[in-house]
Computed example of a mutant assay.
Amino acid sequence: MEILKTYLDLSVFSLLGIMAFIALWFTLERLFFYAKVQVTDYPHLEMLQVDLTKNLTAISIIGSNAPYIGLLGTVLGILITFYDLGKLDTIDTGAIMTGLALALKATAAGIALAIPSIMAYNGLMRKVDVLSAQFKAQKSANNQ
């Protein structure tokens, strides 16, 4: 239990930090790619969509799972709080509230990561739809 108590915050926030870095990296990479992509360079819509959707799954996975990582940190923090209080044989409401408040910071961090990740994913998917529509319009204009 002492190892968990010592490394819980470090491990949860390190994992969320790595996830945030990956989400930001892939979001920026996609934005730069979308800025320079030419739909006329692709012979087939499917090939274009493969390139357009690259790394979007990772952003979505991070956005949907970050709250669970935070929640796991919170549950383990609450477990540690109750374990420590159980060893003291006293009921100190201040210690309980402090422990619970500190445990909830992991959930807050997970949600704080999830919101911009999902927003980025949705915005990038909109750009995929726009570029795909441009491809289709250009192909149908060339066929007429």
Results as ranks from 00 to 15, higher is better:
M1R: 11
M1P: 09
E2R: 13
I3C: 07
K5H: 15
T6A: 13
T6V: 14
D9L: 11
D9K: 02
L10E: 08
L10I: 13
V12R: 03
L15C: 11
L16S: 01
F21E: 05
F21N: 02
A23C: 09
A23D: 02
A23Y: 04
L24P: 01
W25T: 07
L28D: 00
L31T: 00
Y34C: 05
Q38F: 10
H44D: 12
E46P: 02
E46K: 15
M47Y: 14
M47A: 15
Q49Y: 07
L52C: 06
K54L: 07
K54T: 10
N55H: 15
N55T: 11
L56V: 04
I61Q: 02
I61F: 03
I62S: 00
N65G: 00
N65M: 13
A66L: 05
A66I: 03
Y68S: 01
Y68H: 04
I69A: 07
I69S: 05
G70S: 09
L72E: 00
G73T: 01
V75M: 06
G77M: 09
I78L: 14
I78T: 01
L79G: 02
L79F: 15
L79S: 12
I80P: 08
Y83C: 00
D84A: 12
T90M: 12
I91Y: 12
D92L: 05
D92C: 08
G94R: 11
G94Y: 08
A95K: 15
A95T: 10
T98F: 07
G99A: 10
L100Y: 10
A101Y: 09
A103T: 06
A108F: 07
A108P: 03
A108Y: 06
A109K: 07
G110Y: 06
G110C: 05
I111N: 08
I111P: 10
I111M: 15
A114P: 09
I115W: 01
I118E: 05
I118L: 15
N122A: 05
G123M: 10
L124P: 01
L124C: 06
M125I: 06
R126Y: 06
D129H: 14
A133F: 02
Q134M: 12
K136A: 15
K136D: 13
K136C: 06
A137I: 07
A141C: 08
N143A: 15
